[in-house]
Write a protein that binds this DNA or RNA. Sequence first.
DNA 1: AGCAGTTAGTTCAAATCCAAACCAACTACA
DNA 2: TGTAGTTGGTTTGGATTTGAACTAACTGCT
Lengths: 152, 152
Amino acid sequence: MDDDGPLGPRELRAWLAFLEAAHLVEHEVQRQLKRDGGLSHADFEVLLKLRTADGRRLRMSDLARQAMISKSRLSYQITQLERAGLVRRTACDGDRRSVWAELTGAGAEALARVRPGHRRVVRDNLITQLSPEELDTLGDALGRVAERLRDA
Amino acid sequence: MDDDGPLGPRELRAWLAFLEAAHLVEHEVQRQLKRDGGLSHADFEVLLKLRTADGRRLRMSDLARQAMISKSRLSYQITQLERAGLVRRTACDGDRRSVWAELTGAGAEALARVRPGHRRVVRDNLITQLSPEELDTLGDALGRVAERLRDA
DNA sequence: AGCAGTTAGTTCAAATCCAAACCAACTACA
DNA sequence: TGTAGTTGGTTTGGATTTGAACTAACTGCT
């Protein structure tokens, strides 16, 4: 199975399904977040990470790592979110290079406003389409795939 | 299972794994295509669709639909690919609004050059990480997810 | 023929994204 | 100290993406 030829039919089917599902689900998620709160998916992930972080704040580079986005992109994002009042930059004493990105009250509200719809999109388009067994298999299998790439 | 509250732990696990795996695999795919052939993933998909199309050509709007990209984006893409000599625009007699996007020889070559590496990325990062059962389950489950969204 | 409504594709301005260059602050170590 | 190397973040310029406006061509109907 580690040959170099084209993918077999089962392999191809799985790959195409994965690719297409990822694409289409992502599209739905984006649409809902934009519609209900004017947020990009990246914005949403950033706010989410901050909300569950200790003190509702993270240093820029940790945030970038967790949200899987580049430093320069995060810098831009945070500027936009700051402009919208959803996030605040704070100096980090102890390391004057570092900057805290901190969730504001308005940021938490924006998140709360958007979240029910977000859950609904995830549930309607993914979760409820899968049997409980499939759900677990998906979690196992893709969890491994993600973990391996994350650590690399 | 169709309630409105937060996702359960199994559901959350599956969703996060799906999201992260999609993100990371996409990243690897992009990296390889860029490195080996200077192509974006969207470029690659476009060339691929054309290669298997009848007469190695498709009308712009059909191509956009199949490759899951917007009309304006495709228009830009094709201009770039045309500039690189990989694709050619041709008038479509029978409907003077329509335009054929047609794969050139150079386009087919570019595709051939990039493809082994692409297969390798897909295999190494996804296929070989899954058991045969998981592979089929993934194909079934995500195939349904994709089909449903595609038809909507 | 003439007109309203669609459809195919492009173009435009504004928003976003990326990679590389950059600056400042830290660390290690001679 | 001092100085080389690393790390955290921003900036910059160019490429890409988006959505809305636009043009041209087709269709159906009267």
